[in-house]
Simulated scan of single mutants.
Amino acid sequence: MQIVVFNSFFPPAFLGGGPIRTLGAMVTSAPPEFRVSVVTTNTDLGRTTPLDVVADEWVPYANGEVFYSSTSSWLRLFRALSEARSRRPRIVYANSFFDAKFSILPLLLFAVGWLRPDLWVIAPRGEFALSALRLKGWKKRPYILFFKAMGLARRVSWHASSSAEAADVKRVFGNSAPVVIRENDTLLPQYAAAPIPSPADGPLRAVALSRVSPVKGIDTLLAGLSQVGSPLILNIIGPPEDKQYYHRCQAIVASLPTHIEVNFLGALPNDMVREVLRQYDVMLCPTKGENFGHAIAEALSSSCPVLCADVTPWSARLSAGGGMVVSPNTPDGWTAAVSEYARQSTGELLRRKQRAGAIYEEWRSESVQSHAFSLFAEVLRNGDRTKA
């Protein structure tokens, strides 16, 4: 069965974080009965320099192909869309709702009959969480109204990675919106990496694996660190996606007490992430919401415990020993949580790392599901989209 996938970024791009890794894993792990053609750009998030890929032609990838479009002009973008159309897909999968070039424009072409798959699927990737909708809501709300007015809400199905995300979709589009709930794909190993003991008598070594943008809540975490009395080193690994927000975070760092050290290290290639995470005592995740939380899975797979706000599907596993749920997700909440963690002995930190790895392995042993493409093919075979 032919499937076309639209997304702005695809491996080897990595600056966009979890959604890119998730999509790469989904395509790589697709069952052999699916031919998957991905249409994307030949750049990475926030970059204009092209990736080291062959552009503007189909390149083999897993059991399919990728078209890395140099979409510097509308003509080249239309050529990419024409290539997608030439594949005559049964299913089109858009990895975003608000992406202008790779969701909105293809949907408009679908609305007028230029693209004619049997099933159109949208994966909103957390875009309908209340915290996400508040960001630039002046642009998002009119498009949602337009989407409904065009009748598109009655013609698409949705892929949610959790029951919480499914509820977000239904809150925006009504209880009749057809949603398939299927956890995000990952290429992480079955077993966690062995934990590395913490150095004796050193400061707590913490990491935040996150794009520096408002929805990730880094400013909340930094404000909370101002009241932590124990020595701590926090390395923030991720691109500064929002420059104004990044400068605001830097200003907070400049005001922190001298026993709190914060470093912005920039992005890290995906193949280095797990080994780097092993070096830390804990990952801090002050996000305002995640539909899945790929970075959390990576941390646990590295035997690195996670402190995270109660806004992800991981809360129960973190409470069971994978780390700690931080509540409330405020500066005071983070002060209390980090202070408690920083008081642990090296022996206790090692035991917490071991428990985080065990929680990860428990999750991997339980996360056996049919592939997302198989679930949508079943919807197509049943001929009743309302049962999605």
Rank of each mutant, 00 (worst) to 15 (best):
S210P: 12
Y191C: 08
Y191P: 00
A295D: 06
A223V: 01
D271V: 08
V273F: 04
A358P: 00
L105P: 11
G323M: 04
L75F: 13
L225P: 00
A160F: 09
K170I: 15
E33H: 06
T49V: 14
S327W: 12
T41N: 02
S301A: 15
W334D: 06
S327Y: 11
S230T: 05
D99V: 15
S303R: 07
M26S: 01
Y245D: 03
P214Q: 05
R205K: 13
T41D: 09
V311C: 08
V5T: 06
G174Y: 13
F6A: 02
R116K: 06
A13K: 08
T330C: 00
C249V: 06
L284Y: 01
G202F: 11
H294K: 13
S69A: 15
V368L: 07
F98I: 07
R35V: 06
L284N: 00
A193M: 07
L115K: 08
V5F: 01
F9S: 05
I236A: 03
A206R: 00
V4L: 02
G323A: 14
R274Y: 03
D384F: 08
W363E: 13
R211H: 10
P117F: 14
H259T: 11
I236L: 09
L234M: 04
P11L: 11
D99G: 15
S103G: 05
G113C: 00
A160P: 13
Q244E: 15
Y360L: 15
V112L: 13
V59P: 05
